[in-house]
Design a protein around this nucleic acid. Structure first.
Lengths: 114, 114
DNA sequence: CCTTTATTTCGCCATATAACGAAACGTAAT
DNA sequence: ATTACGTTTCGTTATATGGCGAAATAAAGG
């Protein structure tokens, strides 16, 4: 029960949903997500830790960057069944469409890299 | 987006999940749910209004009682896809098993009716 | 009409959550 | 080493949430 509740709580915030929808396009580093959501880096980092804790996403370090991507493995349970539903949802949502568009065409180096 | 968030928030509380799992057995009136969860009636009423607002359940008045049941209609969207998932989840959970057992065998009149 | 019973609404309190900036941490480059 | 940059952690603040009891509402029965 505890884990199920944690799973639903992770999905109960619009910025976290936007992150998951963005990650449907491609893996992203924290600076990219921060730029798109227009939130403080610390806030985005917290959101990512909540999504990771609920097993919706996994991270991968590369130098000083951290890449986040959807957790498509089978090694989880609730997220494995909820992520496919989310794929079909909010396709028309204004924010989501804009976010995905940004994420698809922008080069990370222009946003945050050196 | 607003509706999706409301939907997930409705599922983000253990007592509301217990209510949905109990309603898988049969429709229940507020007094029965209150008895099983061992919460104040006002608290249960609030939980039910949140679940109803997210279209997981519907209510039906019968005299001074109000019956609640799962919303199995097709007239909603998110709940329609989430309720089947929930059916398969928590089947082994201790609280859920106890709740369902109580609900299956107890007569409403013994709990609250006159 | 007045009481009783089931439910909902309201006001209050304690805890949880999301936001921020500052500080800490880790890696890469100078 | 020192600096620079991306990320995380920490402390604070404002708002949201879940709990309760008291009061309000609605229906049934004397």
């Amino acid at each position: 029960m505890r884990i199920l509740i944690k799973t639903f709580k992770a999905l109960s915030d619009p910025n976290r949903i936007r992150i998951l929808k963005m990650l449907q396009v491609r893996p992203l580093c924290v600076c990219e997500i921060t730029e798109v959501l227009n939130l403080a880096a610390s806030t985005v980092s917290k959101h990512l830790s909540i999504l990771r804790d609920a097993e919706f996403i996994i991270d991968e370090k590369e130098g000083k960057w951290v890449w986040y991507k959807l957790n498509d493995e089978e090694n989880q349970f609730y997220a494995n069944q909820l992520l496919p539903l989310l794929k079909n949802w909010l396709a028309e949502n204004k924010n989501v469409v804009e976010d995905k568009h940004l994420v698809a065409k922008v080069d990370r180096k222009e946003i945050c890299g050196t």
